[in-house]
């Protein structure tokens, strides 16, 4: 039974796992340094060796997290791809939400106003 979609929140289901298999497998391979070198030496050939789709290869070329997720990518494996380019999670968050990295960090920091309540055992109304 399909769940009601959560706005702005891709859920990595069996369907995504099937669709994104080759892309995620390529990303998983980047655990090994020699594979990272092979990717950087010839990105297209490396992606082809995993049987990635045109949509997936275009998303890799565009360095677009949004397109990678749409092509079946999973955040945990994509993190290894992002790591090659030294992108951190704030860079990726800013890219996906269309704000600057500083604006994205400021949005995160704004939640710090709830720290004291939570530490005092209160449940703040957000």
């Amino acid at each position: 039974m399909a769940e009601k979609p959560i706005p702005g929140t891709p859920v990595f289901t069996g369907e995504s796992a099937k669709k994104g298999y080759a892309l995620n497998k390529m990303c998983y391979s980047l655990n090994e340094a020699k594979n990272r070198e092979a990717f950087l030496a010839n990105e297209d050939a490396y992606c082809d060796s995993f049987g990635m789709t045109e949509e997936q290869k275009a998303a890799i070329r565009a360095r677009s997290v949004e397109a990678l997720i749409a092509a079946g990518g999973n955040a945990y494996y994509l993190a290894k791809f992002a790591g090659i380019f030294h992108l951190n999670m704030q860079d990726i968050g800013a890219q996906q939400t269309g704000v600057s990295v500083d604006e994205f960090k400021a949005k995160l920091k704004a939640y710090a106003r709830f720290n004291d309540d939570v530490n005092a055992g209160k449940v703040p109304h957000v």
């Binding site: 706005p7 929140t9 994205f104 055992g121």
Partner: peptide
């Protein structure tokens, strides 16, 4: 926390507090 999608950066202290308690 949430890394991906248009809701990337989502944090919910209310639910976290409920869980911790």
């Amino acid at each position: 926390h949430q890394l991906e999608g248009g809701r990337a950066g989502f944090i919910n202290p209310e639910f976290d507090a409920l869980c911790l308690n």
